[in-house]
Simulated assay, not measured.
Amino acid sequence: MSMIQKNVQNIRQKIITIALRCGRDPNKITLLAVSKKKTIKDIKQAVDAGQLCFAENYIQEGVEKIKLLSNLSLIWHFIGSLQSNKSRFVAKYFDWCHTVNSVSLANRLNFQRSSMSNKLNVLIQINISNEVQKSGISLDELPFLAEAINVLPFLALRGVMAIPPLYKSYDAKLLAHRKIAEVFQQLTHMYPSVDTLSLGMSNDMDAAIIAGSTMVRVGTAIFGRRV
């Protein structure tokens, strides 16, 4: 068994342990393997361990991998910042987009997805602490954008995504995650299609799952450090 296969198994076990510890169903939490800068061989090793959901940050790299692995039934998520001139590639090749942050981008994706038989699953990216270096909308913009996406026929509004700040204290980390989870819960009451909170990475998975994340994005802990 390869190191990547072992890592996938270990992360899955960790998700189960954390979920059970806080009274959650582990089956309601999806492991998303962040495969940016990783090889086809690396991805195939993760697939051998039963991993089917992968995330890419860069359009060109992601599209190449999707084409090369099209014979496998994988689900592809785009999690990088999306420039409107590249949106057609996300609409054409990916199953999910985690980084929708404006009505104009949503409209473009909707138009570019119109020839496909299935909807593009979208998450609204929230910039929870209004950090300048991070993209995403502020919390007060969320109701307006959610409403706008919900009426678009070729997009499925599935929830929200966030990258909280790197707090040193665990309590501060948990508080930030809970704030996002609260907003997500409010959306689930308004829109039946909303079921996904993409929150938590290798370094904050514990706090994210306890807060209520339904999808954790893990790269380093599966594939090792990027060179």
Rank of each mutant, 00 (worst) to 15 (best):
residue 180 I to E: 08
residue 119 K to E: 11
residue 136 G to P: 09
residue 193 S to C: 02
residue 61 E to N: 10
residue 182 E to K: 14
residue 32 L to M: 09
residue 183 V to Y: 07
residue 22 C to T: 12
residue 199 L to P: 05
residue 127 N to P: 10
residue 213 S to H: 01
residue 191 Y to A: 01
residue 28 K to I: 00
residue 97 C to G: 03
residue 158 R to D: 04
residue 53 C to L: 09
residue 225 R to Q: 12
residue 171 D to Q: 14
residue 104 S to A: 11
residue 161 M to S: 03
residue 191 Y to I: 07
residue 150 N to P: 09
residue 211 A to F: 05
residue 227 V to G: 14
residue 16 I to S: 13
residue 113 R to D: 14
residue 13 Q to V: 00
residue 175 L to T: 12
residue 41 K to F: 11
residue 14 K to N: 07
residue 82 L to N: 04
residue 114 S to A: 09
residue 30 T to K: 10
residue 171 D to K: 12
residue 197 L to G: 03
residue 55 A to F: 00
residue 46 A to N: 07
residue 158 R to P: 08
residue 166 L to Q: 13
residue 166 L to H: 13
residue 111 F to G: 10
residue 54 F to M: 09
residue 171 D to W: 04
residue 172 A to R: 10
residue 104 S to G: 01
residue 32 L to N: 07
residue 57 N to Q: 07
residue 178 R to P: 06
residue 76 W to D: 05
residue 85 N to T: 09
residue 82 L to H: 05
residue 135 S to K: 10
residue 177 H to E: 06
residue 136 G to V: 04
residue 150 N to M: 09
residue 170 Y to R: 13
residue 205 M to H: 11
residue 71 N to S: 14
residue 170 Y to M: 05
residue 213 S to L: 02
residue 58 Y to C: 01
residue 63 V to Y: 04
residue 133 Q to I: 03
residue 19 A to K: 07
residue 128 I to L: 11
residue 187 L to C: 07
residue 100 V to I: 13
residue 119 K to A: 10
residue 64 E to C: 00
residue 158 R to S: 06
residue 128 I to F: 03
residue 16 I to L: 08
residue 112 Q to T: 07
residue 20 L to G: 03
residue 51 Q to P: 03
residue 15 I to M: 06
residue 151 V to T: 13
residue 89 F to N: 14
residue 80 G to F: 09
residue 11 I to Y: 10
residue 180 I to A: 11
residue 17 T to S: 13
residue 159 G to N: 09
residue 49 A to H: 06
residue 13 Q to T: 00
residue 178 R to T: 14
residue 76 W to Q: 06
residue 189 H to G: 05
residue 101 N to F: 08
residue 194 V to Q: 14
residue 96 W to P: 04
residue 40 I to D: 08
residue 126 I to V: 15
residue 74 L to I: 03
residue 125 Q to S: 01
residue 197 L to T: 03
residue 57 N to R: 03
residue 77 H to A: 02
residue 185 Q to A: 05
residue 112 Q to W: 05
residue 217 R to A: 00
residue 83 Q to S: 06
residue 104 S to H: 12
residue 101 N to Y: 09
residue 102 S to A: 04
residue 94 F to Y: 11
residue 93 Y to H: 15
residue 113 R to E: 12
residue 54 F to G: 02
residue 157 L to M: 12
residue 200 G to F: 02
residue 70 S to G: 07
residue 141 E to V: 01
residue 58 Y to M: 04
residue 165 P to G: 01
residue 155 L to A: 00
residue 70 S to W: 06
residue 127 N to V: 00
residue 137 I to H: 14
residue 216 V to N: 13
residue 193 S to G: 13
residue 107 N to I: 04
residue 129 S to Y: 12
residue 90 V to K: 11
residue 173 K to R: 14
residue 144 F to E: 15
